[in-house]
Each structure stands twice: as C-alpha cells, then as structure tokens.
Amino acid sequence: MAAPVNDSMPATGTGHGGVRPRRVALFLSCAVDFAMPRAGTAAQRILEAMGIEVVVPPAQSCCGQVALNSGHTGPARMLSRHWVDTFAPFDAVVSPSGSCVATVHHGIQRLAEEGWADEAREVAGRTWELTQFLAEYGADLPMALDARVAWHDSCHMLRTLGEKESPRTVLQRIEGLELHEVADSESCCGFGGTFATKFPELSCTMADRKLRTAAEADLTYLVSADPGCLLHLGGRAENTAARVPTIHIAELVLQAMDGSPATTGRVQP
C-alpha cells in the first residue's frame, strides 16, 4: 500500500535572493515540453542573455502534479522522487511553469518520505518560477515593446505558490508596454488540469467569460506563465468570437528584448 500524503508537513517558503546563480537547470514542465516548446526556448535564451549557463537535464520528467491532483499518490511520489534526484545537483532551478513550481514547493513536500524529505525541501528552496528569477536578477535586461497587455493570474501560481508581484514587476520594466489590470485577473480560466476534461461545459464557460473581459480591454496580448491556462484560453479564443491573442511571458520578454516574433499567441490580432 502506498504511503499516505503527508498533509502535516509545512510547505517550503518562496523566499529567494542573494548572489545571482551562474549556472541554472531549466525545468521545462510537461506542457512546455510537449505543447509549448517555444516558451522553453525563450526562457533559455533570456537566461543566457543574462550571462547564465543554462543546463536542460535530459533525465527530467513530470514533477508529479497531474498524478497528485488526480489522487494517484503512488505514481506521484515516484515521479516526485525522480524529479528531486534529477535537480538536486544544481544550485538553482528555473521553470516557465508557475503551477509546476507550486507543486515543487508544496505538492512534493506532502509526498516526500523519510530519507529524501530534507533534500526535497532543499531543492525546492532553490527552485524559481521564471518571473521570480527575472524580477530578482533581470533588472538590467533591455526590453521595449509597444503593446497593451493584461496578466492572467493562474490559480496554482497565485494561490499555491503565492506569487502575484513578480510577473507584474517584469512587465512594468518593458519600455512602451502598458499593463492593464482587468477586473477578473485572479479568476480561474477553467482549465484546472483534469477539471477541463471532467467538466468541459463549465470549464469552457469560465474561459469564455475571461476572454470576453479581455476582449473588452482591447489587448495586444493576454499574458500568463502557466502553459495549461494558455493552451485552454488560446483554444477557446480560436473557437469563439473573442479575438484575444494569448502568449507566454517568456516569449513576450524575448520579443521585447530582440524583436523576435511572438509564436505562442494562438489568435492573431
């Protein structure tokens, strides 16, 4: 029988800081790897532009989020242990997936057992969501883009990881960019992993409501750091009257840095 989830274990903090790491491991996440690879490439190029050596560990796998959220603690624990073993050798880990970083900081800590729990907490303490890392160390990045954007706060990044300010800090550094705060920036888009497949009507209704609000704001892009949310919102935008381009913040930042054309946006303005 699989060991129970340890709900009593305190979650790791998200406090970072100190000297900028010279070498980081890039944790892509399943969604970026399989469905949004350009966001991963953009994250790597941004970090390298900061003078950082970026390593993409070939042994990396799922962090266990999907299995854990579906109640499959045994497979989730196996994946989590492998994730910790893979990234333990690195001084810092950066990921373009807010929900996966939330899992590293909280979900894996609930799964960790005696023998690797301390290592899991230590690795989590060195793991950053991309905008957290850029907010801390990327103030000197030259960025300019004529655009009007809104930020979508994904549930896991906002409510589990507790991160709201870092992406806004990064966006506000982009010369010429207007950050528009929509009224429902913190509302769920309806993705929720398997929620979208179990309750498709409700999931689509939630996405359509968010897209209508974004369309009324006359945005160049709706921006987020969670690939799942972007895939869901982008897919609904293609199938509704809401012509709202979606984009991962890594691609937006890269576009602001060197004029690279955006490719994550699912609907062209």
Rank of each mutant, 00 (worst) to 15 (best):
W116F: 09
E122K: 10
A147W: 00
A144V: 07
T160H: 15
L130E: 00
L130S: 01
M143A: 04
E165M: 13
L158Q: 13
E119G: 04
E175L: 10
L202P: 09
V123M: 10
L202S: 15
L145R: 04
E201G: 10
M206H: 05
D118L: 11
G193A: 04
F191L: 11
D208A: 14
D118A: 15
E114C: 10
E201W: 12
E129M: 02
H152Q: 06
E165Q: 15
G193W: 02
E122V: 11
W128C: 05
G138N: 09
P200F: 12
E129W: 00
A124I: 05
L171M: 09
P200Y: 12
C155I: 07
E129T: 03
A117Y: 05
T194Q: 12
E186K: 13
W151P: 02
I108E: 01
G162A: 10
A150Q: 00
L158W: 11
G192N: 07
M143Y: 04
S185T: 12
E181Y: 08
R168K: 05
L171Y: 01
K198E: 12
Y137S: 04
L145F: 03
A120G: 04
A150K: 00
L145G: 00
A117Q: 10
K198A: 12
E186H: 14
H156Q: 11
T197V: 15
E122L: 09
G190D: 08
W116M: 07
G138V: 08
W116N: 05
M157I: 11
F195Q: 06
F133W: 02
H156N: 10
T160G: 11
M206C: 06
E113N: 09
R148Q: 12
A139G: 14
L158G: 14
A112Y: 03
P167F: 01
A196S: 15
E122C: 06
L179F: 02
A147S: 03
Q109F: 05
A207C: 04
L134I: 00
R121P: 07
I108L: 02
T160V: 15
C188Y: 09
G138S: 10
P167I: 00
H180T: 13
V123C: 04
G190M: 07
Q172S: 15
F199G: 05
E136L: 14
L158S: 14
W116H: 06
D140W: 09
R110Q: 14
D146I: 07
D146Q: 12
W116P: 06
L179M: 03
E114D: 15
V149Q: 01
T197I: 14
G115H: 02
A139Q: 13
T194K: 11
A135P: 03
A147M: 02
C204R: 15
E129S: 01
P200L: 12
R159D: 08
L134W: 00
T127R: 03
G193C: 05
S166K: 06
R148M: 09
L111D: 04
S166M: 07
L141W: 03
G125H: 08
R126L: 09
G190Y: 07
E165T: 14
L202H: 13
E201Q: 15
S166E: 07
R126W: 08
A135G: 06
P200R: 11
W116V: 06
W151I: 05
I108C: 00
E113I: 09
G125P: 07
S154F: 06
E186S: 14
M143W: 02
L171K: 01
E165I: 13
